Amino acid sequence: MISHTVPFGKGYTAARDLVSLLQERGLFVSNTSRAEHFLEHIGYYRLSAYMYPLLKIPKNLHLYKEGATFEQVMMLYRFDKKLRVFLFNELEKIGSSGFWSDKVCHLCLEFEVMSHGGTERTEDY
């Protein structure tokens, strides 16, 4: 059997080593144990999206701007989390408000499509 998988070139790096790497790249970390905790529980790759705006150009060098801090990373992460929760709550309100069910009922009544017992217009579909 031929394997179509591509080997992953990066190995596991412990949280304390990740904190050291971020510091070497210029990110200020005031509380290393707290940073390690977040990297272990949230994950480096998830948090890396919030580190991206703090990188110097060219970003592929992975060097941080002067004054960039791990706390700024966490502030962006928390803001995004609160925004997602807010948006999903608002979308849920729209979904459960009866808006969509009213539209479906209107279309079924107007066109008699897929209404209970009415098959007159379904042959075209």
Rank of each mutant, 00 (worst) to 15 (best):
M1E: 10
S3P: 06
H4W: 12
P7E: 14
F8L: 09
Y12A: 04
R16L: 11
R16N: 12
D17L: 07
L18M: 14
L21P: 06
Q23W: 05
R25S: 11
V29M: 00
S30Q: 09
T32I: 07
S33V: 14
S33R: 13
A35L: 00
A35C: 04
E36H: 00
L39D: 04
E40Y: 00
H41N: 13
I42V: 15
G43E: 02
G43H: 03
G43D: 02
L47M: 06
S48F: 07
S48C: 06
S48R: 10
A49T: 14
A49I: 10
M51K: 01
K56V: 01
P58G: 02
K59W: 03
L61M: 11
H62F: 05
Y64G: 05
Y64N: 00
E66N: 05
G67Q: 04
T69I: 05
Q72M: 11
Q72N: 04
Q72I: 03
Q72P: 04
M74G: 07
Y77K: 04
R78P: 03
R78A: 11
D80A: 09
K81E: 13
L83F: 14
R84V: 03
F86D: 08
F86R: 13
L87R: 15
L87M: 14
F88Y: 14
F88L: 15
F88H: 15
F88Q: 15
L91G: 13
E92R: 10
E92L: 10
K93D: 12
I94Y: 06
G95H: 11
S97A: 00
F99I: 11
W100H: 15
W100L: 14
W100T: 13
D102Y: 05
D102C: 06
K103I: 14
V104H: 02
C108P: 01
F111G: 03
V113I: 08
S115W: 01
H116K: 04
G117L: 02
G117F: 02
T119C: 07
E120R: 08
E120I: 10
D124T: 07
